[in-house]
Design a protein around this nucleic acid. Structure first.
Lengths: 249, 249
DNA sequence: CGGCCAGTTGACTCGCATCAATGTATGTGG
DNA sequence: CCACATACATTGATGCGAGTCAACTGGCCG
């Protein structure tokens, strides 16, 4: 499993870091830690005291409704910054657990504050990173609101594909997808039984192909049309009004 | 229709502003403008060059799928800061239009950058504000994923209620809801026909009561139970680790 | 008055949930 | 290496919640 370079690599996708900024980040970031499948990064109701960059491995965020049923609302892939969405809150409202073994780069909440105080450009990079995560969730909301089961699955597969590619451009149309059908069903608002049927249909139609914990996109354009998927909302660059301003400082 | 005080009032809900910060904001913010129902704040594919604080009036964000069907993904209520979600992007991916007449406080994207450069505390307030919007969308995603039609409507009504109260604590259980059933249906993933039936059922069960463009919550606890609604995720305060740090600076 | 739009109501249909049985790996201890 | 347990995926039968289509009502406005 490939290891990425912590928060500086992740933020580097939003703002070109100079030496000083890279130094600041590596100075604030803690040692990487290895975690096993099933390990929890944090629990519901805890104070958000650490955020984690995923060097490798997948995680997911869930909470439980009044009847104890699990509700998955987010998945984190290698390179993601887990925790910025909730870091300003008094307490976490999700539990985040590893779906696979992995390597994490922890960063204390107070160090995040140091970043904001010492470097406006990094503050902006953090905000951009958070905005991308938000856009992904908004996009999934739209997906679930207006697409049927087949389109939802198509859309989700493409979401993951482009998210993986954003951080690692060696990813091709054959990639790891360590989610059980149970997780897929919780994220897409359908039963795992129906996921199974829909996946079989997509495979039958030669749009994709499953190989154990991995998946292969066989016909990306047709999958994108089926899922009404627009990659611009995932890949779009920085606002030129901000980019110009940043370059001057 | 009540008028609020622009961005300083909105951000003041996240960080206690000192005189200097309030001055900075009022200096950067432009003159308020009046807009009519139907006016667009921006369109899909435009560069995000202005964000708007809603002094009064409601707006909604939509985009159109491949078949031209409208998809509503967000609604803005008085006091909301519209645009921070997309401001870091190269181009807007929604169109935002007024649902009612209203008053807006515009702020140029580059002035937002001035805020981040000149005041880390305000940068944090902006980020907190964005995080709240994100939490609302995440919460609605969970709502749509795992609740049936009745619970979705109950949840949404409470979402609006708590959002209005966050900004204006004079709001009671009778409040304005200038959304057509068409908008509700698009936000909740169901048809307006079914919205009509469900609303009638909720009224029949004495949980709420509709009066034209307004609505009255008759039984808040029961509505909250039905919609599995937890107000903490809307009202929760600032992370104490951040709050303590901010107080020291 | 007539046209228009939002909402309501009923009959019918269908996508997906539910329940239940079976298939297929993967792992574990004797 | 086999007997068994466990977890995940598949398949079929049946039922329900919500969509669809269409007719009708009532308010608003030129």
């Amino acid at each position: 499993m490939q290891h990425l370079g912590g928060i500086s690599q992740t933020l580097g996708h939003y703002v070109d870091l100079n030496q000083e900024e890279a130094d600041l980040l590596s100075q604030l970031e803690q040692q990487s830690i290895r975690v096993s499948k099933g390990a929890a990064l944090w629990h519901t109701d805890c104070i958000p005291e650490t955020i984690y960059t995923l060097g490798s491995g997948w995680a997911y965020a869930c909470h439980h409704d009044a009847n104890g049923r699990e509700r998955v609302l987010d998945v984190f892939v290698p390179g993601d910054l887990a925790g910025i969405r909730e870091v300003t809150y008094r307490s976490h409202h999700t539990t985040v657990s590893m779906l696979t073994d992995g390597v994490l780069y922890p960063l204390h909440t107070e160090r995040l504050l140091d970043i904001v105080y010492q470097s406006p450009r990094l503050a902006l990079a953090v905000h951009s990173c958070a905005a991308r995560q938000q856009a992904i969730i908004a996009e999934r909301l739209v997906n679930v609101l207006s697409n049927d089961a087949k389109a939802r699955v198509a859309h989700f597969v493409l979401e993951i594909y482009y998210r993986l590619r954003r951080v690692d451009d060696t990813i091709d149309e054959y990639f790891s997808l360590p989610l059980k059908q149970k997780h897929l069903s919780l994220m897409l608002g359908m039963t795992h039984v129906h996921i199974s049927r829909i996946m079989a249909e997509l495979e039958e139609a030669k749009l994709l192909c499953r190989h154990g914990k991995s998946i292969e996109i066989l016909n990306l354009p047709q999958l994108a049309e089926l899922g009404d998927f627009n990659p611009d909302r995932f890949t779009g660059g920085l606002n030129p009004l901000l980019a110009a301003h940043i370059a001057r400082n």
